[in-house]
Simulated assay, not measured.
Amino acid sequence: MAEESPLIGLPPIVGAQTRVLVLGSFPGVASLRASQYYGHPQNHFWKILAALWPAQALPSREDYAARCQWLLERGLGIWDVYAACEREGSLDSNICNARVNDFAALQKQLPRLAAIAHNGGESFRHAKAVRGSMALHDNDRIESLRLPSTSPANASWSFDKKLNAWRDALAPYGLV
């Protein structure tokens, strides 16, 4: 069996105004192909955000740069727990030999960061390590939130149930 090269994740989408950082585990096959976070058409991520902010129209999926700017203007950032891994398919359960992203370095770009919202269980499994890698003086003020995964693999949660959970989690940070 030939050795596979590790998959490399996407760069963070963050800005100085980011108050909540959404962390997935690692982009799925469709997202890596498109070089876009939450690129699978059945993923609820962008649909949930559009429902949370109905007064500001979500740019089309063809204009990813505008979508990213739209997200940043509302104080939300995106990244993943893993910088690289080996995996067949898109399921988190298939991830192996993963390398965690450098959250201490990222934190320096996020002076207003108040919470890390883990999009799903695999991401949340690393919540303590992610917070622990950040500067100790800021560690107490940064909340860790566990959100239901927006992945199509999370079919046990309806769209409305996911939407309500995301709304409840982001409201205390002034994002909805």
Rank of each mutant, 00 (worst) to 15 (best):
E4W: 13
I13M: 06
A114T: 07
S90Y: 06
A115D: 00
A165R: 06
G120H: 08
R19A: 06
S31A: 07
F124N: 08
I78F: 10
R61T: 13
E122I: 13
N164G: 15
F26R: 01
A51V: 07
N101F: 06
N94F: 10
S60D: 09
P11H: 00
L106P: 14
S149G: 02
P11C: 04
V20F: 02
A135K: 05
N97W: 03
R131N: 10
E122N: 10
L136A: 14
H118E: 06
A16G: 02
R141D: 14
Y38R: 12
A104V: 13
G89F: 12
L23A: 01
N139W: 15
V176A: 05
F45P: 13
E88C: 09
L58Q: 09
D102R: 04
E122F: 14
A127R: 04
A153F: 15
M134H: 15
K47S: 14
R19V: 11
H126R: 08
H118S: 05
H118A: 00
L21R: 00
Y38K: 09
E88M: 04
G174K: 03
L113R: 07
W157D: 08
V81F: 01
E4A: 10
G28H: 11
Y37P: 08
V14P: 02
E143A: 12
Q109V: 06
N139S: 15
R99L: 11
A153R: 00
N154W: 10
N119D: 05
G121C: 15
V81N: 01
P111M: 04
L76K: 02
I142Q: 02
D102C: 12
I95Y: 08
A65T: 04
E62Q: 09
I116E: 01
I13G: 10
K47L: 12
R67S: 06
C85N: 13
M1Y: 04
W166M: 03
L49K: 03
F26P: 00
P11D: 11
E3A: 15
L76R: 01
L58S: 06
Q56Y: 15
L71N: 03
G39N: 02
Y38W: 15
S31R: 01
L110E: 03
Q36I: 15
L72P: 12
L91P: 12
A84C: 13
S25W: 00
L23Y: 07
S158N: 08
L170P: 09
G24W: 06
A84V: 05
H118N: 01
R146A: 15
S158A: 10
H118K: 05
N101W: 06
G15M: 04
W46C: 01
A98W: 11
S123P: 08
G9I: 11
L76I: 06
E62F: 01
D140Q: 12
V81S: 06
L72K: 04
A57Y: 02
D140W: 00
Q36D: 07
A165C: 07
T150F: 07
N94K: 02
L72Q: 01
Y173K: 10
H40Q: 11
N164W: 14
R74E: 05
A34R: 13
A165D: 05
P12D: 13
